[in-house]
Computed example of a mutant assay.
Amino acid sequence: MFVQSESLAETPAEQADRLFEVFCTPEPLIEAAEKSMARVEERLSAAAAFRVPFQGGELQAYRFTGAGRGTVVLLHGWTGRAAVMTAFVEPLLAEGFDVLALDFPGHGRSDGDRLHVPLGVGALHALYAATGPWQGVVAHSFGGAVAFSALSDMVGDLAPLTYGRLVLIAAPCSMPRVFDTFARRHEMSPEAALHLKSHVKRLTGHPVEAFMGDEILRQHPIPTLILHAPEDQEVLFLSAEGFASAGDHVTLHPLPGLGHRRILYAKETVQTAVDFLAAQ
Rank of each mutant, 00 (worst) to 15 (best):
E90A: 11
G96A: 08
E42S: 07
F88Y: 05
R262A: 14
L29I: 02
T65M: 12
L194M: 04
A273D: 05
G143D: 10
E95A: 14
F2A: 06
D214H: 09
A171R: 12
R165T: 13
H186Y: 01
I222Y: 08
V84T: 06
V72P: 08
L194Y: 00
V208E: 04
V178K: 11
L203I: 02
V84W: 05
A33V: 04
S5F: 11
D248L: 13
L119P: 05
P254E: 08
H253T: 14
L100E: 10
S198G: 06
S189L: 01
L217H: 09
I30N: 13
A273G: 11
G120F: 12
F2L: 08
V22W: 02
S7T: 08
F2S: 05
G164T: 12
A48L: 13
T86H: 03
E31Q: 08
E268A: 15
V52Y: 13
Q280F: 15
H199Y: 01
A246Q: 09
A67W: 13
I216N: 06
C173N: 03
A67D: 15
A61P: 05
G57F: 12
G136I: 13
P118S: 09
E58A: 11
D111Q: 04
G242P: 05
G205T: 04
F211S: 04
A83R: 00
R184G: 02
S5Q: 07
M85K: 01
A101M: 11
P230T: 08
T79V: 04
T86M: 04
R218N: 02
A210T: 02
T79I: 04
A193H: 00
F276G: 07
A129D: 15
A210G: 03
L225G: 03
F2W: 06
E95I: 07
L100V: 06
Q4F: 01
L74Y: 08
S245R: 15
H76Y: 02
T131L: 11
V155T: 15
F182G: 01
R109M: 05
K201V: 00
H206P: 01
A171G: 04
A266Y: 13
E187S: 04
G259C: 11
D153I: 14
L264A: 06
V137Y: 07
S45R: 01
A278I: 13
R114D: 03
E31S: 10
S45P: 03
P172G: 05
Q55L: 15
D232I: 06
S198I: 01
V155W: 13
L8H: 05
G66A: 14
H140D: 05
D17Y: 00
R177T: 02
G259L: 14
D17C: 00
T65I: 14
D232Y: 12
V3I: 15
Q4N: 08
F88T: 04
F276P: 07
V250M: 10
G96I: 10
R262Q: 14
V146C: 15
E191H: 00
G120A: 07
A101F: 14
V121N: 10
E31T: 05
A279K: 11
D98A: 10
A193V: 00
W134Y: 12
A147Q: 14
K197D: 00
G122W: 14
T181G: 02
A192Q: 02
L227T: 07
V99T: 07
R43G: 12
P160M: 15
P91M: 06
V155F: 15
